[in-house]
Design a protein around this nucleic acid. Structure first.
Length: 491
RNA sequence: GGUCGGAUGGCCGAGCGGCUAGGCAGAGGUCUGCAAAACCUUUUACACCGGUUCGAAUCCGGUUCCGACCUCCA
């Protein structure tokens, strides 16, 4: 098997993957800010990095996968008074901030479980690592790359730029940034405190209304945007580790700032490989809470959305995401989802045929050519759409054998079975449970039953209609009659 | 205004110098009492204008559209 080639945003080119420590990989992925329910935009990164993680594990690497939970310190983007996001929601909902964070964390993890995304090896919370963040900020101050003003601490980009390259990841330079700063894309509190508009906050002084605040050498406050990832990745993966993943929208400023912070504090490039996935778009625009065009994961599963005529299972969603390369945008629509679902079902029905395929002494079909093609595609910057295309070719061959037009040997059939399971379930991580069709089947059956019962009622055959209702009740399903028709629910 | 990335058939989406991507939809067929499902076969592309080349969706230049980001929203 040849080696994995991965696109490194740092350097903007494809590079062979080599781990720092033989057969071990440290991987950090920026996790969610838990201030809202998970939507489609949250789903792609976890799936993509889950496949990368699974593939590295498949290649016998021992992977430590760290994904944080951001539960403090971030400000609301759209015009407001700079309240902490979590605090704002908490006021709205009359709950403790941590209660809100916990609830959304649970929802997020539930969605990840549904999508068969493996839980991280470590899932650190920003709120649980304030001390580490303070220590790192102090270290940056000590090195001369940060300064304190009125209880807040800012990173000194120009001081840093004298020795290092601020912009090495995003390809920006400080002059451009200052030129662009005049566009008034946003007005931020505390701008006038900074030496330069390029400087970013490491620690913010808290106003008395802030519920979430911690004691620091600079007074009461809360950590800035970017420091948590730097502090936590260093704590659990070391000052230098293998892979840092995230969405392309995080490239600047978040990841650029992480690099600057880590180099300042540790004198080390934090990550060897920076891997960025592209966004899911809807009508050509990225899906984000701030744009208010998000489809919640639960809305997708249940079909409760104006763009959806019915629900789609997590399995379909995962397949849909993997049918596009992670670095390209993926445009969402029900039509596209429908296409993925049908293809996926066809593929799975072929997989289901393998075990019962009739075998012969000699085989007239091949498997090895596809097998190597699949791993070539995986090694080629995780080209999952190509992998899936090859899987469809395999499905076609399975059907041909099943139709008796070609033959397969026992060994080859076992090989095929193993290959399909390795690739489809273990590496692509497709959920094994048949969530989609079982739910759809139930819907169909229930529609049939309620139709029959409606006819019975029209014919005043209440004996039959009541019998149906009673039997369903006994089976745990309640029917509810109304003027509009009959609805049902599972008790 | 700056930085970066896109424009592929009805839809989603690979390819990145010559070779059918793939899926869905459409068409034809096999099967079937009729359907459905399943399976087989198959039509339709490379934003525009120049250039390089024996040969370009793929390389170069220009044009037009679209998107992301631009520091205290991951």
């Amino acid at each position: 098997m040849s080696e994995l080639i991965i696109y490194n945003t740092l350097g903007r080119k494809l590079e062979p993957f080599k781990s720092l420590v033989p057969q071990k990989v440290g991987m950090y992925v920026c996790g969610p800010t838990v201030y809202g329910p998970p939507h489609l935009g949250h789903v792609r990164g976890p799936i993509v990095f889950d496949v990368l993680r699974r593939y590295l594990s498949f290649k016998d690497y021992q992977v430590r996968f760290v994904r944080n939970i951001t539960d403090v310190g971030h400000l609301v983007g759209d015009a407001d008074e700079g309240e902490d996001k979590l605090q704002k929601q908490a006021k709205l909902e009359q709950l403790e901030p941590m209660e809100v964070a916990q609830s959304y964390t649970d929802q997020y993890n539930w969605a990840m479980d549904q999508l068969n995304v493996q839980r991280p090896s470590i899932e650190p919370k920003a709120s649980g690592h304030i001390i580490e963040q303070i220590e790192m900020i102090q270290s940056i101050i000590d090195k001369g790359y940060a300064y304190e003003v009125n209880g807040s601490v800012y990173f000194d980009v120009s001081a840093y730029s004298k020795k290092h390259n601020y912009g090495e990841l995003s390809g920006r330079n400080t002059e451009d940034l200052i030129a662009g700063a005049g566009n008034e894309s946003r007005s931020l509190e505390g701008q006038e405190e900074k030496k330069s508009p390029n400087d970013f906050a490491l620690w913010k002084q808290a106003t008395p209304e802030h519920i979430m605040q911690w004691t620091s050498p600079w007074g009461k406050g809360y950590p800035g945007w970017h420091i948590e990832c730097s502090a936590m990745s260093a704590k659990y993966l070391g000052e230098s580790f293998d892979i840092h993943g995230g969405g392309m929208d995080l490239l600047f400023p978040h990841h650029e700032c992480e690099i600057a912070q880590s180099i300042s504090a540790h004198n080390n490039e934090p990550a060897r490989y920076w891997v960025h996935h592209n966004m899911i778009t809807i009508n050509g625009q990225k899906m984000a809470k701030s744009l208010n065009n998000g489809i919640k994961v639960t809305e997708l599963f249940e079909g409760q959305h104006p763009l959806l005529s019915r629900g789609f299972g997590p399995k379909t969603l995962r397949f849909f995401v993997l049918q596009a390369h992670y670095r390209g945008t993926l445009d969402f629509s029900e039509e596209a989802l429908l296409a993925s679902e049908k293809g996926m079902k066809r593929l799975e029905s072929a997989i289901g045929l393998i075990k019962n395929l009739k075998t012969s002494d000699s085989a007239t079909i091949k498997v090895d050519d596809i097998k190597s093609a699949i791993f070539d595609a995986l090694n080629d910057d995780l080209n999952t759409p190509i992998v899936i295309a090859h899987l469809f070719e395999l499905a076609r061959r399975i059907q041909i054998v099943n139709d008796g037009k070609e033959t397969i040997s026992i060994e080859m059939r076992d090989d095929l079975d193993q290959l399909m399971h390795q690739v489809y379930y273990n590496i692509l991580g497709m959920p094994k449970i048949n969530d989609d069709s079982s739910q759809n089947n139930l819907n169909e059956v229930m529609n049939l039953v309620t139709d029959i019962r409606s006819s019975a009622k029209i014919e005043k055959n209440y004996e039959l209609s009541d019998m149906i209702r009673d039997r369903l009740k006994a089976a745990g399903i309640t029917l509810m009659d109304s003027k509009e028709g009959t609805t049902w629910k599972i008790d």
